[in-house]
Amino acid sequence: MWRYITKRILIAIPVLIGISIVAFFLIRLVPGDTVTALLGANYNQEQAAALRADYGLDKPLITQYLIWVKNLLKGDFGHSFFTNQAVSSSIMERLPVTFELMIMSFIYCLLIAIPLGAVASLKKNSLLDYLATIFGLLGVSIPNFWLATILILVFSLHMGWFPSGGFVSFFADPIANLRYMFLPSIALGASVGAVVMRMTRSSMLEILKQDYIEMARAKGVSQKILIISHALKNALIPVITVLGIQMGYLLGGSVIIEQIFSLPGIGRLALQAITNRDYILMQGSILFVAAGFVIINLLVDLIYALINPQIRY
């Protein structure tokens, strides 16, 4: 087990190096740089050159990259060109928002999508199954930014039940926090929930046909235990794989959702960094998100091994 974890972490290193290279060079392909963005209308040659020298932007790209990596290895993510705030502290400040958004979307999958998929499979071709299928198709095909806009229009502007944007920390005011997070997490979680629901349904249908389900019935297992302990547990194995992949989608989707609902999360931080050509901040946040994704994938694989005894690391 520990050997496997170590191996996975070692494999993650080249991945992260690759991402650091992509993040570093990609942002520099965008026309204009930090200095043009900083000076804006007051742009003049001498001031620009001075600033560039200040930030080390006049050095060759390779040198700039190596300096950045060297600092990273020392645990120093650098400072934002704009606010001069440490990148690591900006990320830590924003992290709880994105984290909460993802967790809430994830909980929908666990509390709604998986039970709904299971019930739909047990009541195949019933009205409920058809409703679940419609929900699934809509969830998969509606883009999250569109859903977000509709949710705002209906539930905040028209009904006035939820705020249309903004954020309050959970620790400051839990109720208000949940009201702010409710619509964003639905907008973000809908499509993942739909995928998980459909996967649960088809996986359950497959498992219910297995001989060992018939065998469990022949043993006198009650309907409830049959479904939960003999069918659903087995059906969840492919669902977990899908969930792992979908977590990446949740991370990507949170950039847009945070922007629409003005949530101060990491996605929004990265987006601002891109608009400002705030190279250091943007590289730091992308690398951070990538590392997060690697960790989530590792966790998913470990959970997978935990319920499936045929996999031993």
Binding site: Q210, D211, Y212, E214, M215, A216, A218, H230, K233, N234, I307, N308, P309, Q310
Partner: peptide
């Protein structure tokens, strides 16, 4: 049942 390979729950 007939097939012992599939009659036991693998988990």
């Amino acid at each position: 049942f007939q097939d012992p390979m599939t009659s036991l729950n693998p988990l």
